Simulated assay, not measured.
Amino acid sequence: MERMTSAQLHALQKAETPKEDKRRVRGAQRIEVDGIMFDSKAEANRWRQLALLQRAGEISGLRRQVEIPLEGRDGPIMTDGGKRQRVYRADFVYVDHALGVQVIEDRKGHETDVFNLKKAILSAQGIEVLVT
């Protein structure tokens, strides 16, 4: 029986273990639709619905992956290194003509603690997030 060092074992394990995407929640799989990558099938399906609503004239200005800066009581909330401002990335942003307001929407199958924290910070900034 041949023996190996711990460094050899780690190298072997690293080579055999596929890299895990830490952003995936509950097994969501990335999917491409019309040349656009989405984090889940549910998000892709919601994009299709919103695109139809925009073509019908019910909404306008449809955008995806819109970054919204996070602000605290004392100013911008910075990353741990302090070099960049933290942001919330909305799945979709659009204007709903029936309501006459801009809608910030996040397609969630499961709300994480990080999402709930960012949603609370946005709420304190006067920004509400529609979770679908």
Rank of each mutant, 00 (worst) to 15 (best):
G27K: 08
G72Q: 02
F92C: 01
R86P: 02
R48N: 08
A42Q: 04
G35H: 02
E105T: 01
A28K: 12
R3F: 06
L130N: 05
D80V: 13
A90I: 05
G82V: 05
G100R: 09
F92V: 03
I77Q: 11
R107F: 04
M78Y: 02
E128C: 10
A15Y: 04
K22Q: 13
M4G: 05
R55L: 11
Y94Q: 00
R86I: 07
F115Y: 15
L52I: 07
T17F: 05
Q8V: 04
A44W: 02
G35W: 00
W47M: 03
L130R: 14
S60H: 06
Q85G: 14
Q54S: 05
S123A: 15
Q54T: 01
V95Q: 08
G27Q: 12
A42M: 05
V131E: 01
D91H: 10
P18S: 09
E67S: 15
L70M: 03
A98P: 04
E105M: 03
V33D: 04
W47S: 00
L53Y: 10
G82P: 03
R63K: 08
Y88V: 15
R3Y: 14
E71D: 11
K22S: 10
G100I: 12
A44D: 06
D91M: 15
I31G: 01
E16S: 06
I36P: 01
H110L: 14
A120V: 08
Q85K: 15
E67G: 08
A42W: 01
D34M: 03
E43P: 01
L9E: 08
I68F: 02
D113A: 14
G81E: 09
A98E: 10
R26A: 15
A28S: 09
L70Y: 03
I59Y: 00
V129L: 09
I68A: 03
H110F: 15
A124D: 14
R3E: 11
A56C: 11
V25R: 13
L122A: 14
N116A: 14
K83M: 13
A56V: 05
V103D: 00
Q125K: 04
T17M: 09
E58H: 04
R84V: 15
R23E: 13
G61P: 05
D74L: 03
E128D: 09
W47K: 03
K118S: 13
D21M: 11
T79G: 09
R48Y: 01
S123R: 14
V93T: 08
D96K: 04
G27Y: 15
R26P: 11
A98Y: 06
G81M: 12
M4C: 11
E16A: 10
Y94P: 00
M37E: 12
W47T: 03
